[in-house]
Design a protein around this nucleic acid. Structure first.
Lengths: 250, 250
DNA sequence: CGGTAGTTTGAACTACGTCAAGGGTCGTGG
DNA sequence: CCACGACCCTTGACGTAGTTCAAACTACCG
């Protein structure tokens, strides 16, 4: 009955602890907010970054650690999360190559407010916060783009708050799957594959529910024929079906 | 049994539809991110703003309207909210004089993503988005401070997401009251008064619950002696009690 | 002093969490 | 290459925090 197959998820990674100089430059060029700069300017900026590799599951930093660095992902996936007293984690974001995280502003004190964990083995470029801030004042267009990025994230966080405040678990999960597909989707013979390892636990952390509820909802979606799934992966086969569920008003 | 009195909430407002030129300059000087500029520079910036007055309950704009302006509050209180299909509103922020809202980035398209409503009669200063953006590139330190402000809001939104994901209604309400008190609290003979009209409905919109649940929780807090309340107002009489409830881990 | 809008409280209901047990999938080591 | 063990997933049964519906009550304004 169920499609039985190995995980189709495949994240490209070179050797951990190693980003070639070419890769570094390629990444920095690809980062949206550096796109206006010349090759020389980026090369100059590149010198201020140092690279760090992490294995799957490693923590880049914990909430409460002194906040010193800003990271840009070169390869792999990183999740930002918060721990709760009851031991339940809440995932705030799932980041892909080209995206940044870490400290940016001094406004929230000098401690990281959330924890960053490698979801796959990753290569990240790190820069000292103050160095990054001086880049921003040096190149106002870069500053503007960073502002736009942060604004977009605020926008997304507000959308999440609305979801959590007013939608059922089923709809939150449908919406989350659609977002993940838009960000990480890759055409594949099983459907539009969400290209990252994703456990029911993690899906629950993203949608403010429990692994059990996530599993029940996922099972139901699969019965409806909207998705196909396996251990740590989900692919969407009927976007319209999911979208309809996500949007229906009580 | 209950303390019976008139609403202690008193928001200073001059005539609606009227901000004196002195008030405008004073407000602009008071806005954190203009604090480094000279009086002349601010006077120059002032010319690009035009003022708008609104009555209590008025909508400044609706989600979906074309996004053209950025606002800075001179007097009064404004709430940012989103409507849901089921007619339930979700409040995202409650803003006070000196704070800005509206469009800032072009990143989220050219439509407002949320609705802004006057909670009291207000005076607001409005500026065209592109004009504001050119101020930001003209004065990099201002741009940096705006970035810090937006980062702080993102931070706050993440904290809210965590709350909604992992805390009971009782704790969310306790936490929200403490935040409101920190932002809007004024010493008063009834206690630390939250200086804004605040219905159970609005408290519910802020904490992702229903007016009924908000009322029950508020009643309980009052029985414990931590707060005193009336129609549309709440004052905190025992911060420690509330803090303890907010922090206790299951 | 009456009316309106806000608040309180009760009682029934339900979506979801919790606890528990069993089954599937994958990687590793023999 | 197979088999074991760890981890992940599924499903059921039950409990409960919080919603919903409804009805009274009360603070405040004109």
């Amino acid at each position: 009955m169920n499609t039985r197959r190995k995980t189709p998820v495949q994240i490209k990674t070179t050797e951990p602890h190693l980003c070639s100089i070419d890769l570094r430059m390629k990444i920095l060029h690809g980062v949206p907010f550096f796109s206006d700069l010349t090759h020389e300017q980026i090369a100059e900026i590149n010198r201020q970054f140092h690279e760090k590799g992490f294995e799957k599951g490693d923590y880049l930093y914990f909430a409460g650690d002194p906040a010193e660095s800003l990271f840009i992902i070169a390869e792999g996936r990183v999740k930002l999360l918060r721990h709760t007293a009851a031991g339940k984690d809440v995932m705030l974001d799932l980041l892909i190559p080209g995206e940044f995280f870490g400290t940016l502003s001094t406004a929230s004190g000098s401690l990281y407010q959330d924890t960053a964990q490698a979801v796959t083995s990753i290569c990240a470029l790190a820069i000292d916060r103050d160095n990054f801030r001086s880049i921003l004042t040096q190149y106002p267009t870069v500053g503007m783009k960073v502002l736009d990025t942060v604004s977009t994230r605020l926008e997304a966080a507000h959308a999440t708050i609305q979801q959590l405040s007013a939608q059922s678990a089923e709809k939150r999960i449908a919406t989350t799957l659609l977002h993940l597909a838009a960000k990480l989707g890759e055409s594949h013979d099983v459907g539009l594959l969400i290209q990252t390892p994703l456990t029911r636990d993690e899906l629950a952390e993203m949608t403010a529910t429990t692994p059990e509820t996530a599993s029940r909802v996922i099972s139901q979606f699969q019965k409806e024929g909207w998705i196909s799934t396996g251990r740590q992966w989900i692919a969407i086969s009927d976007i319209n079906g999911l979208t309809k569920i996500a949007q229906i008003q009580d």
